[in-house]
Write a protein that binds this DNA or RNA. Structure first.
Lengths: 237, 237
DNA sequence: GCCACAACGAGAGCACTGCTCTTGCATTTT
DNA sequence: AAAATGCAAGAGCAGTGCTCTCGTTGTGGC
């Protein structure tokens, strides 16, 4: 993201160079996203450069490596699904409505951008270590689910359950104390479980790994999955 | 698997060629699995050949393409986790014990063979379409969970719940009628949900995508995940 | 036992990849 | 105006999957 620094560093009258740089990086990412849809994570940097009518070496002025390009796409993807989910949630009133809206928004985004979903929620690219910049966007969707439960919890919309036991419960309690005062360790654990289930439901449908058991009413099936995830997380009503 | 056919086709006295072929394919797969641990899904066929001291072109006598090699590894991986889970389940008496044993066995296999787990439960390799031979081994683990619930259901170990509604319910009911007479559509749907959650729990822990929230007691956390999955599937006791 | 045949290993080669380095040009800064 | 910097292009390197050809070797039919 250092081109952002470059832009804000010195805002001269024209600042042509910084502007075309920003446009160029965006254009590269757009074309790369298009290639992502056909070639998946092993897209060719040279092919992207060809599509842009430039030499492959020129791309390296904008992204130091192919991995860095992928990182930019990953961050954008995390933010895209986060945006979609937040937008959908904002239209809802009840916690359950927010929960369902977030889930369906994520699924629909995944169906529209399967390879980008695979990029962020599939197996990591070999030899690729996610940089620091990705962790914040990566947590947005899950935090949205947590926020929904937090809202439900203050209005008594979450079932009372016995607290957790075990060493991991203390770790979760520490997290709850530091970041989510409205939530208990138990609710956090169940939220994570629900998050796993939702992501699994989307991924398995997307990657066709459930052998096309459900063919006609996939949305209905996912809706049921969402509701059982809500039940798992303790969302009543 | 056609080298198996070759072996059983004509068992002459010596049959040297078929034997060394079988040994060679196994050896290639072994080395490839080793490379998988470092390079992931984009392992180099040439590097595998180098490790074996043979020309890269010679490998193509055994696997028509790199994808075919990966397919063989995928099938083996599915069967390995299936074997492990079945072995662990066989030692248990109660449905819940079987459930927990299957889950922990899968997780431990995944921790021991992370890249193979990524190969089968991560995002599919781009441009790679899973062949017919993979679907049967792929279903083994999930069928094991289903069988556990079936055993529980006949002894009244599954909570009574309202039946499903919606179009997808009919699809599931048809599957239940054809393959799982002991199960209801509702139980199948909940089993799938639990399966999603378990696979998600393993994958996210493996790929480090939950930002190392839980550090110390990962097994305990997974055990809790397993139990909430069981609750989700309706397993009482 | 011999011989045609099929399987096999090796090597060269093709088109492609990510990435680096150098060279010349355009733009910005001093 | 001059120096410094940003940028695009091209050549080049090491590596890839895969194909083809060419000797060699084990195998089944006669």
């Amino acid at each position: 993201m250092w081109h952002t620094d470059l832009m804000s560093e010195k805002v001269t009258a024209t600042n042509l160079r910084a502007r075309v740089r920003a446009e160029m990086t965006d254009e590269i990412k757009t074309v790369a996203r298009r290639h992502l849809a056909t070639d998946g994570a092993n897209l060719s940097l040279r092919a992207v450069a060809r599509d842009l009518g430039m030499a492959s070496s020129a791309v390296y002025r904008y992204f130091a490596s192919r991995d860095e390009l992928l990182t930019a796409l990953i961050i954008d993807a995390y933010n895209a699904v986060g945006d979609e989910a937040e937008r959908a949630v904002a239209e809802q009133e009840t916690p359950l409505g927010m929960w369902l809206a977030a889930g369906h928004a994520a699924r629909e985004w995944a169906l529209a951008n399967p390879h980008e979903w695979a990029l962020i929620y599939g197996s990591p690219v070999p030899g690729y270590a996610a940089p620091r910049d990705t962790v914040e966007p990566a947590t947005r969707f899950m935090l949205l689910l947590g926020a929904t439960l937090a809202k439900a919890n203050v209005t008594g919309g979450i079932a009372d359950r016995p607290p957790l036991t075990g060493r991991f419960a203390e770790e979760l309690a520490a997290i709850a104390g530091a970041y989510f005062p409205e939530l208990t360790a138990r609710i956090i654990a169940d939220t994570i479980a629900a998050f796993f289930q939702i992501c699994g439901a989307i991924s398995f449908e997307l990657f066709g790994q459930l052998n096309n058991t459900i063919e006609d009413d996939r949305r209905g099936f996912f809706d049921y999955q969402l509701r059982s995830a809500a039940r798992l997380a303790g969302l009543t009503e």
